[in-house]
């Protein structure tokens, strides 16, 4: 049986979307699904080492995520890698535009990847965009 594969593309910098992306990626990764996460645009700065995991909410639910102390999205992404062997690939274009060096990213984030590399990773996989 073919391995099920999912690419999770994260471009948003809002709490609800980062949270949903992290939840979907982490649970998929620990369920035997091959997961690749491609970080770009507004999502990237949150993955600089030591950066605050405190993005703005889109609505009231985002605030509830904080007050109810749901697991934070950075913890879930790191668990996707550590417990589920997911790969997290930062977008090389986003790093260049934001002026972020790859070696300043969290240790669980992989090598900068361009669109050609991402398209290779996404070939034949479901792609979910947040």
């Amino acid at each position: 049986m073919a391995v099920e594969r999912i690419c999770v593309v994260v471009v948003s910098g809002t709490r609800e979307r980062l949270q949903m992306a992290a939840m979907a990626a982490s649970v998929a990764a620990v369920s035997g699904i091959e997961v690749t996460i491609f970080l770009s645009m507004n999502a990237v700065p949150y993955f600089v080492k030591g950066a605050s995991a405190n993005p703005p909410s889109e609505g009231a639910f985002g605030d509830l995520i904080v007050t109810k102390k749901a697991p934070d999205f950075k913890t879930l992404f790191s668990q996707a890698v550590e417990l589920g062997d997911a790969k997290i690939l930062p977008c090389s274009m986003a790093l260049d535009i934001a002026g972020i060096e790859a070696d300043t990213l969290e240790s669980y984030v992989g090598e900068p990847t361009g669109l050609s590399g991402f398209l290779d990773a996404a070939r034949g996989a479901q792609v979910w965009t947040f």
């Binding site: 939840m23 649970v27 102390k69 668990q79 417990l83």
Partner: peptide, 16 residues
């Protein structure tokens, strides 16, 4: 005190 998928991820960490 945690919410989904926190307890599941804690379980998986201990299972490993």
């Amino acid at each position: 005190g945690s919410f989904c998928p926190g307890p599941l991820m804690e379980l998986i960490g201990v299972l490993k």
